[in-house]
């Protein structure tokens, strides 16, 4: 009886939790079949490289990536991992990316003590495009471009949300009053009933985001020849950001498989031991 109730309650829970999903009136993010989905998912290295290029050429101008180090790019399951360079600090691609990064690292001149900018090394974290929050806001019409280091974990829907957002810009619906600096996006959380002068029962889904549509066809040339459509750029950068949010996730899933198998075996052995101990005892 107790058991049946627990199962019923659990089922009830799932039913009630359902409708409360779409946050703040936005459209539910499109569900993409990422290669890294699921317990056996892995990142596609080519996709990560393309996504990194999109980040480098489009996003890095405004969005910092403060928690990610250059050397992490060369770690196992990362975009530039090379099995000949087990130590990512020796990986020549990673060293070149760091040294060639447009934004340099603030440092102190050891002889004069003056603040200087020096080229990044693999040991550095990605330098931020703006020195502080005030400068970032000043450069973006008062809005603060969020740091992207853990963005896939900081948004409901993760990579699905990021991709949906980047491809979700539409023409402003007639009847929606939006200031010049904000842009309508059906996947961005918000409540548009205040700016909507149309039918009260059909308030458009989504919200107004300060970021203008960042991607355009052909904006980034992919080295592997993949077509540079907005859809492709968006998927690739979303995958890259998902990786950057948790570089160890592939290792986590692989360790998980081994652990689950071992625990299953262990539980079989312990159960057999338990039955043997209790074999002649009434229970």
């Amino acid at each position: 009886m107790l058991r049946k109730t627990l199962v019923l309650a659990a089922a009830l829970g799932l039913v009630i939790a359902g409708p409360a999903m779409a946050s703040g009136g936005a459209l539910h993010p499109k569900e993409i079949n990422w290669t890294f989905n699921g317990p056996l998912g892995k990142f596609d290295q080519a996709q990560l490289q393309r996504g990194f290029k999109v980040y480098q050429e489009v996003c890095a101008a405004c969005h910092s990536m403060r928690q990610l180090s250059f050397r992490t790019l060369g770690e196992k399951s990362g975009p530039f991992y090379d099995e000949h360079y087990k130590n990512p600090n020796d990986n020549p691609y990673v060293k070149a990316i760091a040294a060639g990064w447009a934004q340099q690292v603030p440092d102190i001149d050891s002889e004069t003590g003056d603040p200087v900018l020096r080229p990044a090394t693999t040991a550095d974290r990605f330098p931020a495009p703006y020195p502080n929050e005030a400068a970032a806001r000043a450069g973006n019409g008062g809005a603060l471009p969020p740091d992207l280091s853990v963005i896939a974990k900081a948004r409901h829907g993760g990579a699905d949300y990021i991709h949906s957002l980047l491809t979700g810009y539409r023409a402003t619906p007639a009847g929606l009053k939006a200031p010049e600096t904000l842009h309508y996006n059906a996947y961005f959380p918000g409540d548009l009933s205040g700016s909507w002068s149309g039918d009260k029962h059909h308030v458009p889904a989504g919200g107004l985001i300060a970021m203008p549509p960042p991607l355009a066809p052909g904006k980034v040339t992919f080295d592997d020849g993949a077509p540079s459509t907005v859809e492709q750029q968006s998927r690739d950068v979303a995958a890259f950001l998902a990786w950057a949010s948790e570089p160890k996730q592939t290792e986590r899933k692989q360790t998980g498989l081994a652990v689950m198998i071992y625990l299953l075996l262990l539980s079989v052995l312990v159960y057999a031991s338990y039955r043997r101990v209790w074999r002649n005892e009434s229970h």
């Binding site: 071992y262 262990l266 052995l269 312990v270 031991s273 043997r276 101990v277 074999r279 002649n280």
Partner: peptide, 20 residues
């Protein structure tokens, strides 16, 4: 009738638990 402590299954289970 105490369970025979030297039963293989108990040793295996304890060893696996120690491994974990």
């Amino acid at each position: 009738e105490d369970p025979n402590r030297r039963d293989f299954i108990h040793i295996a289970a304890i060893a696996a638990a120690a491994g974990a």
